[in-house]
Design a binder for these strands. Structure first.
Lengths: 225, 225
DNA sequence: CAAATTTGAAAGTAATACTATGATAACATA
DNA sequence: TATGTTATCATAGTATTACTTTCAAATTTG
């Protein structure tokens, strides 16, 4: 059996569906690698055009600007995480185990399991860690939000909050705890690598397991009945 | 008695001390208001020059680029918060009360108490909320860090972690909890305003007290002995 | 095969992020 | 008060970014 899953970000994000053409797919796949390497600020459509042997104008036919392309990447990622959560939690009843699973998914990097997409998940995860905040920390946030473009992120947050409520229905802040968890799962590994003074993870344990330990401790403490 | 406090960001941040001249002080004071209004991306030295009736070139004699200016603003802010914590915690013995005070300071906005600086603290706080992450989420992070330019932020984090350790010496993640707290104290009010689905704070309670309640609950739960 | 669509190639524009230079104003010292 | 120093202004200039436009060639689709 070959499970074909297709992760399709909101169509409003792109001017035309990039998964429907060779050029479009190259924009996404090379774009992820290039943005990961250069960082959002240094990344330009011109550089991407060069690296895929195409032109700036052609890329502009797919995406209005690089902020939309970033949103497309992030949407892809959050849809993928949501999908992973849905699959992983499917047969589980115990909310405690569900929460552990969620934290594992959020911190664990994406398994390349069943990957037929050709998307470099590890590069994508690096983009999510380093550039996510730039998606919403902009003066355009309200305009973007009113187009529902943050829906996958909000849906995942709500999904997690629902599991928290299942674990402890009396806890008053499930959504805030979920968004704090999602943010911390990005920031703590980044701090661990670049600003270790902001964490308690020492050099030798530079692995995601340590972060997961901290987050589990935090979440279960907060939710304790 | 007139307490004169002077908050001086790291000198390496500026090419010449902006507090030592009229123009320099205008760059800081108007710069804060303008960056708050336009957001980091739309803010330019040219626009700032126009709004203070000076020239781009003159501003470049004070700051290498706008990222340094942002760092200067943030450093000012974190030094100020550190100072406030030092003063507020001075006569307190009970670590529980200290923690409540810290959360109040982190979420409460800056009182304009004893203000002789002419700096718009409320605009500065908006910059901290919306633009802080852009200070370190850049490919230059390691270079900047090696110049000690994140020291005030790291010092405050360590200060808070120390109070956590005082409250519960056995807690294994005081620094990560401190950085998570500092980040959440910025993000939750931002989410409350722009992406309320990521929080549990409803429209009518759009005040910082609600966020403080969530953060106290979270921190004390994590630190529970 | 014809028509429609996509892409490439090239050029152009406005704004950004600087750098350079010479003139003038302010200021400090002798 | 004269003189040297430094800060600021005014202007101009460069390279890059973030796009837009146009037209021809290639490709896809009906």
């Amino acid at each position: 059996m070959n499970l074909q899953i297709s992760i399709q970000p909101n169509l409003k994000l792109a001017l035309r569906d990039p998964e429907a053409s060779t050029l479009g797919r190259k924009i996404i796949r090379e774009g992820i690698v290039l943005m990961c390497n250069l960082g959002y600020e240094q990344f330009t459509f011109k550089k991407l055009a060069e690296s895929i042997d195409s032109t700036e104008a052609s890329i502009y036919r797919y995406f209005e600007n690089k902020h939309r392309l970033l949103l497309y990447f992030l949407t892809w990622y959050w849809n993928y995480v949501e999908y992973q959560c849905t699959v992983s939690l499917h047969n589980l009843n115990d909310p405690e185990i569900k929460i552990r699973k969620i934290i594992e998914i959020l911190t664990g990097g994406l398994p390349n399991w069943a990957d037929t997409t050709g998307i470099d998940k590890s590069a994508l995860q690096d983009i999510v860690i380093a550039e996510s905040s730039k998606a919403y920390l902009t003066k355009e946030v309200d305009a973007i939000n009113s187009q529902q473009l943050f829906k996958p992120y909000k849906d995942l947050c709500h999904h997690i909050a629902t599991v928290f409520a299942e674990y402890n229905p009396a806890y008053p802040y499930p959504h805030s705890l979920a968004s704090t968890l999602m943010e911390a799962a990005q920031f703590q590994p980044y701090f661990m690598e670049h600003l270790p003074a902001l964490t308690d993870f020492k050099g030798e344990q530079r692995n995601k397991t340590a972060v997961a330990g901290y987050l589990e401790n935090l979440v279960f403490a907060a939710l304790r009945k």
